[in-house]
Design a protein around this nucleic acid. Sequence first.
DNA 1: TTGCCAAAGCTATAATACAGCTTTCGAGAA
DNA 2: TTCTCGAAAGCTGTATTATAGCTTTGGCAA
Lengths: 237, 237
Amino acid sequence: MHYSSEPLVAGDFVASAIVSITRLIREGKLKPGDHLPAEAALSEQLQVSRTVIREALRSLAALRLVDLGAGKRPTIAQLDDASMAMMIEHGVVTDQIDILQIYDVRRTIEARTAMLAALRRTEAEAQLILSLARAMVDASGDPVAIMEHDISLHIAIARASRNPVFALIIGAFQGVTRQTWPIGWKSRTDDDERQAMNALHEELALAIVDGNPHAATVLMNRHFDQSIKALLTAGLI
Amino acid sequence: MHYSSEPLVAGDFVASAIVSITRLIREGKLKPGDHLPAEAALSEQLQVSRTVIREALRSLAALRLVDLGAGKRPTIAQLDDASMAMMIEHGVVTDQIDILQIYDVRRTIEARTAMLAALRRTEAEAQLILSLARAMVDASGDPVAIMEHDISLHIAIARASRNPVFALIIGAFQGVTRQTWPIGWKSRTDDDERQAMNALHEELALAIVDGNPHAATVLMNRHFDQSIKALLTAGLI
DNA sequence: TTGCCAAAGCTATAATACAGCTTTCGAGAA
DNA sequence: TTCTCGAAAGCTGTATTATAGCTTTGGCAA
């Protein structure tokens, strides 16, 4: 294979190397699983030390554009929500994003994923969604289990929307959700209220299984109304 | 200041260093502009070579959690859409995301940002939004100028929503938009059609200036209906 | 043909060196 | 006293070399 290999110029060698390597991916039409040249080869092509190449590759690995591994050549990676999750969590930790803002984004997007899931879910996805909702109901008494099923359910719905960007974004909120979910749960002091939350998830799952986009949208919005109210009640925001 | 400094254990030194450094940020309650310890200090605290520390810091810099600069200690960074933009573009380049999916996400989110902007925009934001829409109208005949004003307008609306997560996501789509916008433009062969697009943006801007959330939502949805239709007409998808 | 092993290729980490940028701090001027 | 300026100290950016250990390759043997 032939690579366009101008030697680097600008002041920041690593930044230039990142640009050159992403261009390699673009112009080589590389797909997930394909390999980049070895570090030594890149070092020679771009006329910089292996140190610079490694720092550039680590940067791309942090963004999940490539996968690295001992003994393995750098590999083009699949989309993954882990790196976006780090960004979001950093925003929250450093007070640049608050929880209510994240819930507003989730509400906006998930009303749409619920609708799309109702229209597009495969049979297997429908079964997964329903079983996760039922697992929530069955796990009553074990908040951590309920939470994990809840998170998995929302992600399953996002995947069933068949739009990987929605799945990416919703997946990125997992970490933050894991930290705030117990707050909302505790604010639902009443046992009826807690069962109602689980029941609402089951209704939502059924709407998606039934292929009823309007009902799915309405139920997802209702769910977020209640979740946000619970967080406000708890004085989170 | 005191840092929790367990020496690293796991197999992947760099990954462990990333975790430790993010913990430093979290537990130190560091905010944008604050500094991390110098590379040499981190190297000693975490008991790994400076090589490992540097690769970890480069990873965090790629995600925009920290800023690096010659002579300067690593600095906690502000949220920035550049790294998310790289992820999205990689998804498109490697056929993991298609353009229609991005437009669906934009439509979903921007209907909301338009509504929120109408409710929350400051006077300065209102003026900016209106002037960008008018600049689009005035730039007729210069597609590149129209495109840049268009992109700036959508970002200004997202910022006026006062939710940084929306601004982050919409900002991340800039690069892709810059590549696909001309396609939609060319598919609007008729001059009336092109003027109508600009006029629609101006109406949208006025709805936001007037503080009319319902009109803003409707107009933004109409805009995306037309944009998506234009891309489909052009056979993009 | 299939399975296995040794060799070759490659990455992960460490240590050292030095150029060049930034910050600090004290001496001297106003 | 306060302000200014420059030298020194501190720090990062890049290169080089070395080595352990993982992965892939290619050929040999059954």
